[in-house]
Design a binder for these strands. Structure first.
Length: 255
DNA sequence: GCCCAGGGTGTTT
DNA sequence: AAACACCATGGG
């Protein structure tokens, strides 16, 4: 991984708090931690326990890509297109909020929304703001969130905050549930359907078998993997999904 | 001004 | 089960 290939991970639609600066460095945050990744400090930052976990450094992605290469020729192509792509270990609450806001929205705008959310209700930590905790959002009015541009998703975000603050949604409990049951608990929230639930599971709880299926993935599956289902990709289906999503978005001429 | 964006919900065929 | 309208907002 270097500054140029970091985009495969930080700009592939799984997170919304990183930006690349003109000098090629990356500035961003995760949960309550911020970082500025430069050519000089990248290696050292990735040795820090928090960031090593965030970037899933302990996992052997080379082996997983080889496994995928044997599974399907197009998957081999997609994985080879972004060999430094990794599934981040994001804060589950932040991931759930991000993807509640993602529905019927574009990535640019999602980034702006998340940024304004942090600026308005997160804790200031030096040069950046933390992502606001569920308790901070739970005491807001729906109008407060609409004022940030959340639109009709404001009520969904507020409901998720109140459920979580009241303990009705417990991410640590979701970790130990079978995937179907964890998905079921998440979709009980208003405005959370199968796609947003799978995003929270994959990006927030690192459930690598979760397979978020948005409009891009529906097209990609129909054209590139006709007849295939998420389970056909195995226990790392979510990683396969990310290779395919990223590859598809960068090859719109295929569709 | 129009179209679309990492969807979900409720209603109608 | 599949098709549809509706939900707000702003970037391209």
């Amino acid at each position: 991984m270097n500054l140029d290939t970091l985009g495969q991970t930080l700009d592939c639609g799984q997170c919304f708090r990183w930006e690349r600066l003109p000098d090629g460095s990356w500035r961003g945050a995760a949960g309550a931690c911020g970082a500025h990744l430069t050519k000089e400090n990248l290696k050292r930052v990735l040795e820090d326990p928090f960031w090593a976990d965030y970037f899933d450094m302990a996992r052997d992605y080379d082996a997983i890509r080889e496994h995928f290469a044997a599974l399907h020729p197009v998957l081999k192509e997609a994985a080879g297109y972004a060999p430094d792509l990794r599934i981040l270990n994001q804060n589950p609450w932040e991931a759930l909020c991000s993807f509640i806001l993602s529905q019927c929205n574009n990535i640019k705008r999602i980034k702006g929304l998340v940024s304004r959310l942090c600026g308005a209700y997160g804790e200031p930590c030096g040069a950046f703001h933390s992502f606001p905790g569920p308790e901070s959002l739970a005491r807001l009015d729906e109008q407060d969130l609409r004022a940030l541009g959340c639109g009709y998703r404001a009520g969904y975000l507020l409901a998720a905050a109140r459920h979580t603050a009241e303990g009705k949604l417990d991410f640590d409990r979701l970790r130990s549930l079978p995937l179907d049951e964890a998905r079921q608990k998440l979709t009980e929230l208003p405005g959370v359907g199968p796609k947003v639930a799978d995003c929270a599971l994959l990006y927030g709880l690192h459930r690598l078998e979760a397979f978020p299926t948005d409009v891009w993935m529906k097209r990609a599956m129909k054209v590139l993997f006709p007849g295939w289902k998420p389970k056909d990709f195995g226990k790392y289906a979510g990683i396969a999904q990310q290779y395919i999503f990223h590859y598809s978005r960068n090859h719109p001429e295929l569709f």
